Simulated scan of single mutants.
Amino acid sequence: MSKISQRRALLLAAIVPALLIAGCSANNQAMKGAASPGGPTDMDSMSPEQSDTSTGEASPTGAGGQAESAVQAFFNALKSGNVDQVAESFSNEAVAAVNGQPTAEGSDAIKGLFQKQLAGANGWKQATHTIEESRTAGSDDAIVRSTSKMGNDNFRELFLLTRDGGEWKISQFMNNKA
């Protein structure tokens, strides 16, 4: 197992239980009729430092804010329909699991996946994206959770990011319909 794979496995082992607990807690609040911390916001009108987080507070301007900026750049590339910029948001060994599609592993597969996603999909230009939460996991890894609305469809996204040559790159991405 490569060093990168080991880091990813440890990162997943550390965060998945926490995210499951956070998700169950949010579902319990919704079932009780509790108000959510904030409504969806069009990320185009906000910088990542101003975006809603799970606590309703501004996100940190440090590594977590930089990881959010990388996710925002991914969303902006989707909205512009620029497949090359979308693919550049990912690390070379990234994995993307998009709702209803086969898992894409590596740069070429991810580029192909998003070419299919963006072909004829005019809804991406009007989509709204909200970064719900971001956390750093050490100095070189971060987790960003977001929600998106495209037409009548609502999606949940989970991004694992890592520093790659000083830049934050998406190393693992998963989305599904809410």
Rank of each mutant, 00 (worst) to 15 (best):
F159H: 04
V95G: 00
S2A: 09
A13R: 07
G106M: 08
G120R: 08
M46N: 13
A94K: 04
A97W: 04
E49Y: 11
L20K: 08
R135C: 10
H129K: 05
S80W: 12
S107R: 13
L161A: 08
F159N: 00
I143R: 00
I110E: 03
Q117C: 08
D140N: 15
A35L: 05
K32Y: 13
L118P: 05
W124I: 11
M43P: 02
M150A: 09
Q101S: 12
G151I: 10
E167N: 11
F173W: 05
N154G: 10
S146K: 01
S5Q: 10
A121D: 13
L113P: 01
A97M: 13
I131Y: 04
P37L: 05
A22D: 06
S45T: 15
G166N: 04
S69W: 12
N92W: 12
L10E: 09
S80D: 14
T162D: 00
N176H: 09
D42A: 10
G62P: 03
R135V: 10
A73L: 06
K149I: 11
D153F: 13
L161E: 10
S59I: 00
D108H: 13
N99K: 08
S134W: 00
L19D: 12
G65A: 08
S51T: 12
R145Y: 02
S51N: 08
N27F: 15
E132S: 03
V98Y: 12
F90R: 02
P40R: 12
I4G: 05
H129L: 06
F75K: 00
Q126A: 15
I110F: 01
S89P: 02
D84V: 14
A178K: 15
R145E: 06
G39Y: 06
G62D: 15
G123S: 11
M174D: 04
A9H: 01
I4E: 14
N28H: 15
A127V: 14
N154A: 06
A87D: 05
E157W: 05
V95W: 03
L20E: 10
L10Y: 03
G123E: 15
R8D: 06
M43I: 08
T53D: 06
S148N: 08
Q126N: 14
D52F: 02
R163G: 02
A121M: 14
R8S: 07
Q117E: 15
P102K: 12
L19S: 00
V144C: 07
C24L: 14
A104R: 03
K3L: 09
A178G: 13
C24I: 11
N175P: 01
A121W: 07
G64C: 09
